[in-house]
Amino acid sequence: MESPFFLLTILLFLTSSAAAAATSKPGASHDLVRSSCVHASYPTLCFRTLSSYSGAASTPRDLAQAAVKVSLSRASKVSTYLTTSVTGKSKRERVALGDCVEQMSDSMDELSKTLRELKHLRDETFEFQMSNAQTWVSAALTNEDTCLDGFEGVDGKVKSDVKRKITNVAKVTSNALYMINRLNESRG
C-alpha cells in the first residue's frame, strides 16, 4: 500500500501537469488575442477574426501580422466579388464600381507592403518601418472610404452590397492599424 505522502505527491504532480497543459501555447495565444483586442475599434470582430486565424500568435508582432493578413484576405475577396459578381445597371454605378475595384487594388498593394515590412522588422530601423506600416494601412483605410464615396447619390442593391462588404474590410483594416500601433508601443 502506498503512503499518503506518495499519493499526495502524485496528485500534486497530476494537478500541476493539468494546469500546465491548460496554460500551454494555444491558451496563451487565445489570452493574448483577447487582451489585445479589448481596446480595438471593433473588439468583437477583432477577437473573432484573430482567434480563429490559423497559426498561433504568441507576440504582438504575430498579432499585427495576422491582423494585416485578415485585412488583405478580405480585401482580396471583395475585389474578386466586385470584378466578377457585380454589374452596375446605370453608368454611375459602373463608374463607381470601376473606381472601387481600383481603390481595393491599391489597398491590397498597401497591405501587402505592410505585411512585408512587419515580417522584416529590425531594431535599427524599427521606428521607420513602423511609420511605413502605419502610413500604408492608413492609406488602405482611405482607399476603402473613397470607394464608398463613389456611391454618393446612388441607391439600390449594388450600393448596399458594396457598402456592406467594404465596411467589413474597413473594420478589419482599422483593427489591423490598431494592432500595428500596439506593436509600435511595445517595440516588437
Rank of each mutant, 00 (worst) to 15 (best):
S41M: 07
M108E: 09
L111D: 02
Y53A: 11
C100P: 02
S90L: 02
A139W: 06
R182Y: 07
V78N: 01
K119E: 15
V70P: 00
D149P: 03
K159W: 04
H39A: 11
D62H: 09
F126L: 10
R122M: 06
V101K: 08
S76N: 13
K69R: 12
L7W: 06
A18T: 08
N132A: 11
N184R: 15
S52R: 12
R187L: 15
E127M: 13
S85Q: 13
H39F: 09
I10Y: 06
L72K: 02
Q134M: 10
M104Y: 07
E102H: 14
S71H: 00
M130V: 04
E127H: 13
Q103F: 13
P4W: 05
E185N: 14
N175W: 05
L12R: 05
V38C: 02
D106W: 07
K113W: 13
P43C: 03
H39E: 12
R34Y: 08
T23V: 11
T83R: 13
D149I: 10
G98E: 06
T125P: 04
N181P: 04
G27Y: 14
Y42D: 02
L183P: 01
V154A: 05
S52K: 10
S79W: 02
K91C: 00
S36A: 08
K119R: 15
A22D: 07
M108K: 08
R34P: 03
G98C: 00
R48F: 06
T80N: 10
T9A: 15
F126N: 03
R92D: 06
F126M: 06
S51Y: 11
N181T: 13
E117K: 11
V169W: 01
K165F: 04
V101M: 07
N184K: 15
A56Y: 13
S107R: 04
L118T: 00
A176C: 05
E2L: 09
A176T: 05
L14P: 01
A21E: 11
L118W: 04
D145K: 15
Y178N: 00
R122T: 12
N132L: 14
Q65A: 10
K113V: 09
F128E: 14
E117D: 13
S3L: 09
T44L: 09
A66W: 04
G88Q: 05
R182D: 11
P26F: 05
E144F: 10
V33L: 03
E144G: 09
T173P: 05
E152Q: 14
E102F: 14
R92H: 10
T9K: 13
G27P: 04
L97P: 00
